[in-house]
């Protein structure tokens, strides 16, 4: 089955930002599939100081590659993508993972929804669930989604999703301001909402990863996640929203 090219988003300059660390097994096919579906979009792989062939394979598949000299962390790599998009004048950033879990076929829906929302989150739980997550982690994700929903007064079902369409106003906020270096989650969504930006959700299909392992794996990082998230939410609520006035006009 040959995927059909999509005309969605052709009137806008769109960058598909793919942070990747040691994803040689999957990054090539992800880049190729995205380019095939959306030939007008620029695919930008932020290679987070990989030890393997991630950068070379991404480039061979047709992506622009930004190579970090030292490990930035997931959030640091994502923010680099936002800084790139901000500097180069992109209208929209589609953020997705390099491990093959995010289906490139869902990009069109995210881009389409981004006409109505400043930030669109691809939710694994808003639609059909074919995705297995350890029970404890699922409970944590649901809990933080519930908290974020209550605070932002919007229905958010999947705050930890790394499959998003981020409008220029929102990625400018992250490019010029701060962005979590580890796992951006409910705190970043609350931060976006506090600036008065709209947040929408579309269901996305998640595959089991082709390669690699979850960023949050093992007891230590799970505990760290469970402790860090409530703290990050509290701190986000204490921070004063910023206005990057005029900085966007270039």
């Amino acid at each position: 089955m040959k995927p059909e090219r999509s005309d969605v988003g052709r009137d806008r300059v769109v960058a598909v930002v793919i942070p990747a660390r040691n994803e040689a097994a999957s990054v090539g096919s992800v880049v190729a599939k995205v380019s095939e579906l959306h030939p007008d979009f620029d695919v930008v792989v932020v290679d987070d100081a990989s030890d393997d062939q991630t950068a070379a394979l991404a480039r061979a598949a047709g992506a622009k590659v930004l190579r970090a000299p030292i490990r930035l962390g997931y959030g640091g790599a994502v923010q680099t993508g936002f800084k790139f998009a901000h500097a180069r004048g992109y209208d929209l950033v589609v953020l997705m993972d390099a491990d093959g879990q995010h289906d490139p076929a869902c990009i069109a829906a995210l881009v389409e929804a981004s006409r109505s929302y400043d930030l669109v989150v691809g939710s694994r739980f808003a639609g059909e669930a074919s995705y297995r997550i350890p029970v404890v982690r699922l409970a944590g994700m649901k809990a933080f989604s519930a908290i974020a929903s209550a605070i932002t007064r919007r229905r958010l079902t999947d705050t930890s999703s790394g499959f998003q369409a981020v409008g220029r106003k929102v990625f400018t906020l992250f490019a010029l301001g701060s962005y979590p270096v580890d796992f951006p989650d409910a705190d970043t969504l609350i931060w976006v909402a506090r600036h008065g930006f709209s947040i929408g959700e579309v269901p996305v299909v998640m595959h089991q990863r082709v390669a690699g392992k979850s960023m949050i794996s093992g007891v230590t990082s799970s505990v760290k996640y469970a402790l860090k998230m409530p703290l990050a939410i509290v701190v986000t609520l204490l921070r004063i929203p910023v206005a990057h006035k005029g900085e966007d006009a270039r």
């Binding site: 590659v65 930004l66 970090a68």
Partner: peptide, 19 residues
Amino acid sequence: QVKDLAQKVTLLSEERPER
């Protein structure tokens, strides 16, 4: 500061696609 510097270096490292 190190993160900001590393990101600046990363942005300067842009390599064009081969084809």
